[in-house]
Each structure stands twice: as structure tokens, then as C-alpha cells.
Design a protein around this nucleic acid. Structure first.
Lengths: 116, 116
DNA sequence: TTTGAATATATGAATTGACTTATATAAAAG
DNA sequence: CTTTTATATAAGTCAATTCATATATTCAAA
């Protein structure tokens, strides 16, 4: 499917950008764009509780922006490339400086986390 | 200035998309992308009060997304093409279907409004 | 088949957001 | 100068959002 040609109605666009107009969820999307992460990694990387992490992921999941992959007792999240909103999300993520301090700090913390 | 190369930090991106993740303000941006509008036109086109209209425009203005042009007792708003967020906003607006019902309805109402 | 680890859901408090009514400002017209 | 028109700001209300604490579910290991 060629997502680059998909047009959304204005309500769908609002719903999509509302979900990622939160510092935690925007950075979660920036991360899952590159690779999949399990919930426990997010809990360690972001300074919020496990329930808060889970609730952010639920919003991203219910909006169709991420897909869930269960392996054992872990749940891995990655970008849902086949959603109609994928191209708008990627367009927004592409505007974030790769040297953004908060993003870099998350990657540093990720290096210290060993999932599984 | 070549806005296409401007990168923002994640906080700036959040602030920008938070402002336009509202149905009224997203459509206002979709309109001012093409031409300038005065406040009284927005009041007639959107089904909200004059203060509500003014408050939406203030948010867009304070975020730097629109610029204000005063002529006589009217204030005209148009997209601020030279803001660092202009490219991200345009990227989002480009994902909205030109045949979006709400957008088309606004254009129909605009035809009936005579400002000045 | 109990225990533990990972994750989700429920609930309530604090914060933020959008709207309305009322009032203020500012420019033009009389 | 006073009135009118366009717009902005202030204050209050109601709804939505985010987080924490507490509890439930799910899966694997013992």
C-alpha cells in the first residue's frame, strides 16, 4: 500500500496529531520508528510510572499508530507502517532534530537497559 | 529562508502540533494557507462566538503560526511562512483531503460573507 | 498449581483546555 | 466628543487529559 497518497479528512488528522502532541508519546513514536521496544524498556527510559507508560501506549495503539507484538510475557511495540496515518506521523517525526537533547538522553538510557 | 531544512527540538514540535490539534484551529490554518482572512469572516464561517474565535487566533498567533495584519478596524490573519514551524504545519495540512466535507462547508460559507 | 514478573485496567486528584458571558480597547463615523 | 463596529481580554464553568496508587490479568517458571 502506498501510504504517501492517502488523504485523511480533517477530523482524522486532528485525532492523529492530538495523540502525538504529548512529549512522551511523540518521543515514543520517534523511537518505534526505528525499532521495536518492549514496555519495560519504556518504563526504564522515561521518568514515569509503569501504568502511565501503559496508558500512553494504549493511546498510540488505539489510534492505530503502533502495533503490538507479544513474545512470552513481553509486549513489543513498533510503528504501524500500514496505517493511513503513518505518513503524517513520519512527516512530523522527520522535523525533529536528530540531535534533540531529550531524544539523545533516551537513547543513552536505552543502552543501559537490558530487556529479557 | 529555506524552511525545509529547519529542524526543531521535540518540545517545539509538541507545542506546534498541540496548537493545531483542534478541529477549529486546524481548519483555520488550512484556510490561511491559501489567503488572508479577517476575524469577522471566521466568526461567520465557524459556528463559535467572537471571543472563542479571537482566543483560537491568539493561540495560533502566540505559537507564531499566523501573522496579523491591521487595516482600519479589521485584523487580517495569514499563515506565517517564515516561522520555523511553517514546514511542519504545511506538511500536516497537505495530508488533509481537499474534498474534506468540513473544509468544503467553510468555503461555501465564506462565499456568503462579505467583509468590509 | 502456586509464585513472580510483565503489563493492563480502574479510580480519583490535579491540571489543562475550550467555551460562554461580561467588559475593555481601538479605530472609524457621525 | 460621542457612538458604533471590530476585536481582545477577563473570569468562571464544564469537560478532557495526565498522572499516581491500587488492583487485575497473563504468562512462565518453579
Amino acid at each position: 500500500m502506498d501510504t504517501s497518497t492517502v488523504k485523511l479528512n480533517s477530523g482524522e488528522v486532528v485525532n492523529c496529531i492530538k495523540v502525538i502532541s504529548d512529549p512522551t508519546r511523540l518521543l515514543m513514536m520517534k523511537l518505534v520508528e526505528k525499532k521495536e521496544y518492549c514496555v519495560c524498556q519504556f518504563v526504564d527510559m522515561f521518568d514515569i510510572s509503569q501504568p502511565a507508560t501503559s496508558q500512553h501506549l494504549r493511546k498510540l495503539r488505539e489510534a492505530g499508530l503502533v502495533k503490538e507484538n507479544r513474545r512470552g510475557q513481553w509486549r513489543f511495540y513498533s510503528m504501524n507502517e500500514s496505517s493511513p496515518q503513518a505518513s503524517i506521523v513520519k512527516g512530523i517525526l522527520s522535523q525533529i532534530d536528530e540531535e534533540d537533547q531529550q531524544y539523545l538522553q533516551l537513547l543513552e538510557k536505552e543502552a543501559l537497559v537490558d530487556c529479557q
